[in-house]
Design a protein around this nucleic acid. Structure first.
Lengths: 257, 257
DNA sequence: AATCATCGTTGCATAATTCGAAATGGCATT
DNA sequence: AATGCCATTTCGAATTATGCAACGATGATT
């Protein structure tokens, strides 16, 4: 494996900038990465010169730069599905009064492509973000996407070990996950029963391309206290309907995701 | 200036991946950057390991990776204005039947934060993209944003040279631009008269924060053949109304851009 | 089937680059 | 004024990235 260590270090430095901590000083970063200040300064300067970071002229702190949006715009071009799905998600958000997500599978994670709706002013909601990720095996959308993979594909992704528990409810044994995925294939939707986030349940449904392959998933996200069995059945009907409509549009546009 | 040259090279390599050419092979990139294949291979491998590139397993070609979306999601968090403006832009797109843009100033460029509407099926439209950039001095939105800067701020951005002409109509002399900006401050909107893209005209208006500072701009983009003086007046009224409504919402939400 | 050209990947010695320590100036606090 | 912390720069030593050569795989051509 031929990794350039100074390039790796520079790229990893970007990960320290988060939504919670969008601005950081040289000193803060040096302490966090446990590297000498002058080295970190040079990395920051390089990232800034390339537009990946910018520096607030008043505070002298660094934050992620707009070059990243420029590059991101080039990535979104691959996901026409997002444009197609947006009006349907908006309609579903109005209909249900809940938060709606769209995601694709990347490796063993889902990646959020779109999020619509504000929920019902509840305190408990999900801190998800465009481009953000969660383990596929815990989330309704992830399980939908995994259910469309072959045994060997699943093995290549998860191996034979135990899965990390995100909550007490997370399925952490691969045989149980395989069972769950078989059930999902049968019933055509998936439930996240407080497996990704405590207190949050989701119902997810598959978006298929013209060839029937599951290329994305859409879900309704609800606080557990509002998600009884009656509500599950209701949302299942709505979200699978939305997914089917998106799928038809996807197929009609010869979309490739 | 302390630039790490190997990090710089790696970051610059990302720029070779565009919407037009989303996938590239090792050999293609090596030829383009005029560097040895084995060096480029190691850079690609490092970028791939960090998620900035991914490799199509069938073609072996590289493309931009989803880590970029992850980071972009953290940048968007700075632009609450985008969420606020979206419904108003959608309404304006319906009302005018044209393409609507939202942008902010970054250095001497505008950066597109949002784009709504499809225009009227015309062949001639603008290839703009979320996160994409254009020189501020040529575009209606850019001129709106520049008009809010002080003389010294403008001087720091543009210096004393000539500006690059994008089209025969582009203002390329700084004194003329300063005059134009003074006019814009007076009238409260700006016109791009085929200065950024040939055959394309835009009317732009300022979005202000609670303190009256211009923090973003919104514009209507029209093919020149459909933009007579009557249409200019009509669109000016609509776009400044939209900008005012967004500004009020921005001020109400104590937004910081 | 054999040959050729091109591709992607790896190992190694050398050249290039990066690193850390020390120094310096700026700013805020006492 | 003294102190502490910050950001930035210089320089020699240590480390890393580079380019070359080699290799196997693949596809096209003979």
């Amino acid at each position: 494996m031929q990794i350039l260590s100074s390039v790796k270090k520079a790229l990893e430095l970007l990960d320290h900038f988060t939504v919670e901590r969008p601005e950081l000083s040289l000193a803060e970063i040096s302490r966090e990465v446990d590297a000498h200040k002058s080295s970190v300064f040079r990395v920051l300067t390089t990232l800034k010169a390339a537009g990946f970071l910018e520096k607030d002229s008043l505070s002298g702190k660094y934050r992620l730069g707009l070059k990243i949006l420029d590059l991101a715009g080039r990535v979104w071009g691959r996901y026409d599905i997002r444009q197609i799905a947006t009006p349907y998600m908006e309609e579903l958000a109005r209909e249900t009064g809940e938060v709606i997500h769209l995601a694709v599978l990347d490796g063993s994670d889902i990646v959020y492509l779109e999020k619509k709706g504000q929920g019902q002013g509840q305190v408990l909601t999900v801190a998800t973000r465009l481009g953000g990720r969660n383990p596929a095996y815990a989330s309704s959308m992830g399980k939908i996407l995994l259910a469309d993979l072959s045994k060997s594909e699943l093995k290549a992704i998860f191996g034979r070990g135990k899965l990390e528990k995100l909550t007490p409810n997370t399925i952490d044994e691969i045989p149980k996950l395989i069972e769950e995925l078989a059930r999902i294939r049968e019933q055509g939707f998936a439930l996240d029963n407080e497996e990704t986030f405590p207190g949050i349940r989701c119902v997810g449904a598959p978006i298929r391309d013209a060839g029937g392959k599951v290329v994305a998933a859409v879900s309704v996200t609800v606080p557990a206290q509002r998600m009884d069995d009656k509500r599950v059945r209701e949302l299942w009907r709505l979200v699978t309907n939305t997914a089917r409509m998106i799928s038809e549009r996807v197929a009609a546009s010869k979309m490739e995701a």
